[in-house]
């Protein structure tokens, strides 16, 4: 009896693994459900967006989706002459949503990285971010060399932390667990400055006028671009053309002024964020 039970257990485990590791079959090009013609035929484009990241993709108190990414999604819908269906995703489900055809395109603050490029096709970027450094206006830090041998606040796991650990070993890092903690530490004067994604800092100095983002860009720029399923050249080409067109007619500038500017301090201008070329 006992042997039988062990056997059943083993069989159960085996079936679990068999199911979990079923090899994916390659999708047929002919049946691409996210090609431009398929989207137009359907009459709706499915867009993956964030629901909790103001001012990029969020939901206002009336329950309406709004933000910089959302405005772009609506414009794309308009130019394709289709309705837009928003699918709210989390950061870690953006790739899977594309792969499983839950969405046609991802417009969710999707940063282009070499790892992601292996599994997702990125269209032309529409926004740039990089590491910035904020410090009190009275003793503003404008060059990295001013930080040598001094304490700098970062949050664990951010790009700012990895940038300073790898590239600026002379700077002493004070590491915190959350945004709230790191900003409190800066206010209490525990270090001379704080480094984080510049877009967060712009938003923070807006409410804290005694501080200034003295260094706006550090290290390599990172780009935010629409993500499209690998192999979907039809939609990729269309999106690239669309971004070019929107760049020319100043759409992103308007989008910046409407959605981002109210959140950022006055020392930021559109050219720090949007890409115009």
């Amino acid at each position: 009896m006992k042997k039988g039970r062990i056997l059943t257990g083993l069989l159960a485990a085996a079936s679990v693994f068999a199911l979990a590791f079923t090899t994916p079959q390659p999708t047929k090009a002919a049946s691409n459900p996210s090609s431009v013609s398929a989207i137009k035929k359907r009459g709706t484009i499915k867009v993956a967006v964030f629901g909790d990241l103001p001012p990029y993709g969020w939901v206002n108190k009336d329950g309406k989706r709004t933000g910089y990414d959302i405005a772009l999604a609506k414009q794309i819908g308009k130019d394709l002459n289709t309705k837009v269906k928003f699918v709210q995703v989390n950061a870690d489900s953006r790739v899977d949503a594309l792969k499983s055809n839950k969405v046609d395109i991802v417009l969710a603050n999707f940063t282009v990285t070499p790892e992601r490029k292996q599994v997702v096709a990125f269209a032309k970027p529409y926004m740039k971010v990089s590491v910035g450094v904020v410090s009190p206006k009275k003793k503003v830090i404008t060059k990295v060399s001013q930080l040598n041998g001094k304490n700098l606040i970062v949050t664990k796991g951010t790009t700012a932390e990895s940038y300073f650990t790898q590239k600026q070993p002379k700077v002493q890092l004070q590491k915190y667990d959350s945004k709230t903690q790191q900003f409190n530490a800066l206010k209490n004067g525990r270090a001379v400055a704080l480094a984080d994604d510049n877009s967060y800092l712009y938003a923070w100095v807006k409410n804290h006028p005694n501080y200034k983002v003295g260094i706006k860009h550090l290290g390599p720029n990172q780009y935010i671009a629409p993500g499209i399923k690998k192999g979907n050249t039809s939609l990729l080409n269309w999106t690239n053309k669309e971004i070019n067109k929107l760049n020319k007619n100043g759409f992103f500038k308007t989008d910046y002024n409407q959605n981002l500017k109210p959140y950022f301090g006055s020392d930021v201008s559109a050219k720090d964020i949007i890409i115009t070329k």
Partner: peptide
């Protein structure tokens, strides 16, 4: 995750 993301990739049921 399996039913929402993984199975549709293999069996084309959405």
């Amino acid at each position: 995750f399996l039913f929402y993301y993984i199975l549709p990739q293999n069996f084309h049921i959405n």
